[in-house]
């Protein structure tokens, strides 16, 4: 294994898949000449040229729809949204077209498009720029939604996404781009299948299930709790649709307690979906209600002191963990 940054792992996945398959191309704002708003696509224009690294004007509905159309006739686009907030003008294309055409055409047309970009707050960018979109999109059958938290998962899941014949929404994190982690050596191809959760850390007393940006924070929290005598099992769902119920349920059957941690708003979403599956499949094993720790149920404020309270904090997770253990 070698160390790679999350951003570089994503880039490697795109390079490998673009080299493997000429039908794969990247389109989005500032992906080419500017080298990517967050530098994920750095160097791709020089490597693949303007035919395959396409700078688009600010026309999200246009280029998302263009990608769906191109996919209907055999191309395999990767659409970069500068951030997922800007997918909202393209919501109609994703929900009405990308997600529906395969079913509406009775399987005659496939939509192998990957939509990718950073999700959730990038810190102090306020209400319109801080959406955690997984709750919107996970509701839609016909879409896959994945949200890696490590460089290895970023690479392995993106390769799978690009090869999949369905529309895949690939959520990244602005604050994840810089993190380093183990990634298999060049030449050791790894495709991480959708619908498989990752047991990041084994534990005995409580299961914490999360995905995406909160995961690194939870790894640290697990260390702290360990010292306080609480053994926390951490599961990174990483694929939200499909969701690996079996791994989560098996863990809860072992620990008998669970806290689900997410950044999206608490009303519904994959966070609530996970809780629902646990109560259906592990009801008799639960020693406490399953709790959730999430962002607060308000639009994101700008001021740092307020944002720090609104975004799910380690303190809120700790409190929930202690509560399911009846320690407080």
């Amino acid at each position: 294994m070698r160390q790679l940054r999350y951003r570089d792992a994503l880039r490697e996945a795109m390079i490998e898949e673009m080299e493997r398959d000429d039908r794969v191309f990247l389109i989005g704002e500032e992906v080419g000449h500017y080298q990517g708003a967050y530098k994920v696509s750095q160097g791709l224009l020089e490597r693949f040229g303007e035919r395959r690294v396409v700078d688009a004007p600010i026309a999200e509905a246009g280029f998302a729809g263009l990608a769906v159309g191109a996919a209907m006739v055999g191309l395999r686009p990767i659409v970069e949204f500068m951030t997922w907030n800007f997918s909202l003008p393209a919501f109609d294309q994703i929900v009405n077209n990308a997600a529906k055409i395969h079913q509406m055409s009775a399987g005659q047309f496939r939509i192998p498009v990957v939509f990718r970009g950073p999700n959730a707050s990038a810190r102090q960018v306020a209400a319109q720029h801080s959406h955690a979109v997984e709750a919107f999109y996970c509701n839609v059958p016909g879409l896959y939604v994945v949200y890696p938290s490590t460089p290895r998962d970023a690479k392995g899941l993106l390769k799978t996404a690009i090869r999949d014949d369905n529309p895949v929404l690939f959520l990244e994190g602005e604050t994840l781009y810089g993190i380093q982690g183990d990634v298999p050596e060049v030449g050791q191809e790894e495709l991480i299948p959708f619908g498989s959760a990752n047991v990041v850390r084994e534990g005995r007393h409580v299961t914490v299930v999360s995905f995406g940006r909160p995961v690194p924070m939870l790894v640290k929290l697990a260390d702290q709790l360990e010292q306080e005598g609480i053994s926390m099992e951490l599961i990174d769902a990483r694929s939200l649709r499909p969701l690996d119920t079996a791994t989560i349920v098996a863990s809860v059957k072992k620990t008998n307690r669970c806290v689900v941690v997410h950044e999206h708003w608490p009303y519904g979403g994959p966070g609530a979906e996970i809780v629902d599956r646990i109560q259906r499949e592990a009801f008799d094993y639960l020693d406490a209600p399953v709790l959730r720790a999430s962002n607060l149920d308000v639009p994101m404020p700008y001021a740092l002191n307020l944002e720090n309270e609104v975004i799910v904090t380690p303190e809120r997770v700790r409190a929930a963990v202690r509560q399911v253990l009846y320690l407080d």
Binding site: I58, N85, F86, L88, P89, Q124, V125, A126, A127, Q128, H129, P301, Y302, A303, L306
Partner: peptide, 25 residues
């Protein structure tokens, strides 16, 4: 009140209907 920051200056008294951060919105 610190809710909007640089991109969201609204001022009803001066009939300023805001800074908006989604292009074209």
């Amino acid at each position: 009140r610190g809710l909007g920051g640089s991109m969201h200056l609204f001022d009803a008294e001066h009939r300023m209907l805001g800074g908006h951060a989604i292009v074209g919105g």
